[in-house]
Amino acid sequence: MTAFIIKRLLSAIPTLLILIIFSFLLMHSAPGGPFSSDRPLPPEVLANIEAKYHLDDPLPLQIWNYVVGVVTQFDFGPSFQYKDRTVNEIIGQGFPVTLTYGTISFVVAVVFGCALGMMAALKQNTWLDYLAVGISIGAQVLPNFVMAPILVLIFTLWLGWLPGGGWNGGAWPYLIMPVIALSTSFMASIARIMRSSLLEVMHSNFIRTARAKGLSSRDILFQHALKPAMLPVISYLGPTFVIMITGSVVIDLYFTTGGIGQAFVNSALNRDYSVMMGITILVGCLTIFFNLIVDILYAWIDPKIKL
């Protein structure tokens, strides 16, 4: 196990390096640059600015200096767009926001998704099943960019219960709508996966054996069926968690939470290279880390898997 973890962490290094190099090259091949603007800058001004940000160095040197800066000083450089902020500050401000509502949404999606899926599977072909399936299909077809304005219309404009946006340090009234809008469709997916996987397990031989032994339905579910039924759900949850805590562009934009999703999109539109790189690396690291967690969970749940 320890050897596996160490091996995986070591293999993350070349993965990240490749990610950095590819992102760097892709970014620089996009038309325009951080300082191209409506009114083109006089050449001498542009030269001054590019020199200030070392954009006049050859690309391999830029990548090298960047990697050295990141590794030796954990310095992701200054933002090209926001003159008084560094990438570390931008991520340090935006990531906790996204992490907060992402984690809460994740918990909500997992709890309600699993509950719905289990209910549907255990009461297959009853009205409970149809209700659960109906809810999850309904939730799935309502993407968050439709959900967000509807929620605001109802809870802010008509009922006047909740603020229509903002973050305010994460006070709970500001959290409710982002969490609902973000978790709903993930909850629906989890419910669907949970339902089909649990149905399959419940029809398998070892469950029939357990039933024949006279175990109660409760014991069968919690001691025998749930663990194997969770495997497909868990492999879905790893990447989903990363998406939820980093990529909620719609939520950030619509509720102006100030999260990292919006910063990422803005950096791409503004060609704010350093911010774009910083967030890409963050997402890369999180993806690698949570894939590792998923693998470890797999081994823990399924004794057939040896790490």
Partner: peptide, 18 residues
């Protein structure tokens, strides 16, 4: 000054007296 990128989101919040 509140940063609200979406014009219609901003209009809704205006109508909600924010």
């Amino acid at each position: 000054a509140l940063v609200i990128s979406d014009e219609s989101a901003a209009l809704t919040r205006y109508l909600a007296d924010e």
